[in-house]
Structure formats: C-alpha cells, structure tokens
Amino acid sequence: MDFHSFKDWFTVENIMHLMVQYRTLGPLPGIFLLILEAFLPFLPLFLIVMANANAFGLWIGFLISWIGASLGAILVFLVIRRFGKSKALAFLYKNRQVQKIMSWVERHGFGPIFLLICFPFTPSAVVNIVAGLSKIRIFQYVLAVLAGKMVMIFCVSYVGHDIFSLVEKPLRTAVVLTVIFLLWLAGKSIEKKLAKKHEKEQNQG
C-alpha cells in the first residue's frame, strides 16, 4: 500500500469497520488512531473523531477522542522537548520563524496555545512542536491542551455523532456545514490576530 492509498483509506466507514472488527479491544483502536494522528498529521482527525462518536455515542465517543487526541499532543510535545535540540532535529530549532514563535509562546503561555487548539482546522502538529521547543512549562502546556482539545473534540463529536442522518436531513446538514465554516473562519481570524500582535511586539522590540 503506497502513501496515497494509505491516506485515502481513512473514511468514516472504514474507521468504523476497523472499530467493529476490533471491538474486543473496546475504545483502544479509537484512542490509538488519534495518538497516531498527532505524529502523522496528514491523517484525518476530523473523521476519526466522528467515527468514535458514531461507534460509541456522543459522550463516550467524545471522551475516547479527547483522551486520544490529548495523549497524542502531549507525547509529541514531550518527544520534541526531549530530542528537539538534537542534531537530527536541529533544523527545527534553528529556523528563524520557529524561534520567533517560540519566544512569543514563552511570553504568553497558556492563552494562545489554548485558542489555537480549540479550532479543528488549526495545524496542531505545528503548535505541539513549537511548544516543545520553547521554554513553556509542561504544566501550562498540558492544561492548555486538555482544555483546548475538550472544546474542539466536543464540537467535532457533536457534529459527527449521527453523521448518517445528515444525508436524510438536509436542514441539519446545512446547519452542520455552517458550523464547520464558522469554526474555520473563527480559527483563521484568531490566527491572524495573534500573528499581527506578534509582529507588532517584534517591531516594538
């Protein structure tokens, strides 16, 4: 199986089939897939969360996805914190743009990380890596991840917990698409505001 075939395999139906196939393992496949997504960000977090919500119901599915996504983010952070300044990953730490974002994260801590993680379309892998390279305290980061992922995962779980009914209910589909679009707009707006604020602080410094 090549890269594109592997990537294309990830649909709600296939993920749910995998969960049914390994149902004796309970929630472990759903948690594992989200931990894997943190290390391989091209995997569709949105679809995995929706599959969990469909397979286990809104609340249990949300809890499984929240645990998996949070664990994955924290593991990436810890790996980067431990090995990010090694020779193999030195290109990340020495990158000028990364250095700027790192200093900004160090100054502001919890707030921007929480806001960025709240939205499903934010490149959370970048947030995890930059936070790992920065000097932000582990406690601050873990708290931001747990709170931000809670908001984001619940929104996606709510949208996807009965995804098959979206085909039968056009009005609900329109509402769901509108919510997704608004989340995307809000995330992009916050990213731009944070970037402008950072640029202003750099100019003043």
Rank of each mutant, 00 (worst) to 15 (best):
F32R: 01
A73D: 01
L45R: 04
N54R: 03
W66M: 09
L28S: 13
P27Y: 08
N52S: 11
E37T: 12
P27K: 06
F42S: 11
L43P: 02
L40Y: 06
G72L: 13
I60G: 05
I35W: 05
A73W: 04
L43Y: 07
A55W: 06
F39R: 01
A69D: 06
P27F: 13
F77C: 11
L33M: 15
L47R: 06
R23A: 14
P41H: 07
F77T: 05
L63H: 04
W59H: 15
I74L: 04
L33W: 11
G26H: 09
F32N: 05
L45S: 15
R23D: 13
L34H: 11
I60L: 13
I31R: 01
I60V: 14
W59D: 12
M50H: 02
I80Y: 04
F56G: 00
M50L: 07
S65E: 09
I60K: 10
L58Q: 03
L63D: 05
V79E: 03
A69Y: 04
A53E: 03
I64D: 00
G26R: 14
G26S: 12
F39L: 12
S70W: 09
I64R: 05
N54M: 15
W66N: 00
I48K: 03
L45D: 02
L33C: 12
L36G: 15
F39I: 06
I35G: 07
G30W: 03
A51K: 00
A38K: 06
L33Q: 06
V76C: 03
P27T: 10
G26D: 09
G57M: 00
L43H: 04
V49A: 11
L78H: 04
F42K: 09
A73N: 00
A38I: 09
N52F: 09
W59N: 12
G61I: 04
N54D: 12
A73V: 05
L40C: 14
L36V: 13
A69C: 13
L25H: 14
